[in-house]
Nucleic acid binder design. Structure first.
Lengths: 227, 227
DNA sequence: CGCCCTATTGAGACTTGTCAAGTCGGGTGG
DNA sequence: CCACCCGACTTGACAAGTCTCAATAGGGCG
């Protein structure tokens, strides 16, 4: 077992957690490695769900669009994340790549079958589902109860929590302001002003539009606080 | 199999779905019947998760409060709903009764064990989890993208969908305006004005603060539309 | 009938959205 | 190598939406 970096937030639970080498091999036998360029789609809303995925490298974004053209970003995804949990015939959202990314494509049918053979795998999927729900409930709270700058802190804290602790103060934003706005239920301009406000208040520093340093992690956490 | 009323929305999936009589008996052997008065709490956020529940009659509300006193209502629950899905040690929300209610209290330990014996039960729980996630994603979309009156339509449509089709146009609101406001991420006053606006526009009629008739279901659905 | 709690309505303040102008930076072609 | 160009981001002024505070209305219950 290799040394793992020390993360602030994320329980590094993946579908592989706790599997034996033999079991990992069984799972890997199903895997088709795929590479996405920035901007590529992994799959689209309303298309038939054929596979689930594990993100290996890069960053993905999950979004949902309405017939009226409004878009809500549901999540930004990091390496290790499991993608495609849905208990319906069709995907209920679109997943696209923010950066060049590699994913493990796991066809749904054999994956479902393998879950019956490997209780640990089934349990991992169940627990990942729980984490996704918990994340989504946090988002509901943020969208329902927080002001613009608090929502931005909420996002920064989420992103920071996915970084090894030593680097957790310096954040590379892979997504555009539009993506952030659609994630937080705001407009580009409001997001931009919220960044400006946080900078003026000395909570963050902005080196470039996509590089942010957290100067006052405590205040940021306080503003981001969801419960 | 008895005749069931015809609902607009809800797939009437419960933990009992598809179980044999023998299996139902096994499950029912675990059940402790409980009765709640309006305002009673079923359990509190941050307390140890000991049981899961199925709502038998009445209406419950699931909410989450922050340390700063802000409150977000996550769901209103109807008979048949399963409560307490969490894959953590502690409940992440509070559940209270909006009306007199009866619930089946199912202790977690034996319920978990029984799931291993009954694949159909396990599958029901998994699918219910998927429905809850889908519901929560709808809520994220509503809070992130919709205006006040659209959010109110979103709620009315949800409530209407849980009624037999013949009664689906006449809605009894069991919750207070504050509960609605906290569900939709608004204030009482904004909710009240949104109701007024929908009434002026002839989309609904308001007989009393807690009795609403849907006059124009199509327009309501359009405003409520989430995807 | 009157009290109390809840809901509605109104006026004004604040937050966020909209529209428009201006800045910045990276990439391309001269 | 530089100028230009384009997209993305920022900033400003104003409009719209929502919140806050306060007053009023309504309904249920003693």
């Amino acid at each position: 077992m290799s040394l793992r970096p020390d993360y602030t937030d994320e329980p590094d639970l993946t579908i592989y957690s706790g599997l034996s080498v033999a079991e990992i091999n069984q799972l890997d036998a199903l895997v088709i490695q795929r590479t996405l360029q920035a901007g590529d789609y992994l799959f689209h809303q309303h298309t038939q769900a054929r596979s689930v995925y594990m993100l290996e490298a890069g960053m993905l974004m999950m979004e949902r669009s309405s017939s009226t053209g409004r878009r809500q970003v549901m999540a930004f995804m990091h390496p290790g994340n499991f993608i495609g949990i849905t208990h319906r015939e069709h995907y209920e959202f679109t997943v696209s790549a923010l950066t060049r990314a590699t994913v493990r494509d796991i066809p749904l049918k054999p994956f479902t079958a393998l879950q019956d053979a490997l209780p640990q795998l089934k349990d991992n999927v169940r627990r990942i589902g729980g984490n996704i729900l918990a994340h989504t409930l946090d988002q509901v709270f943020a969208l329902g109860q927080k002001k613009a700058d608090e929502r931005v802190c909420f996002l920064l804290k989420q992103l920071s929590g996915r970084l090894p602790r030593q680097q957790a103060h310096m954040i590379e934003l892979m997504m555009t302001r539009q993506d952030i706005a659609d994630y937080l239920g705001l407009t580009i301009e409001t997001v931009s002003r919220a960044f400006g406000k946080l900078k003026r208040e000395g909570i963050i520093d902005i080196y470039s539009a996509h590089t942010v340093e957290i100067l006052d992690a405590d205040t940021l956490a306080e503003l981001a606080l969801a419960d």
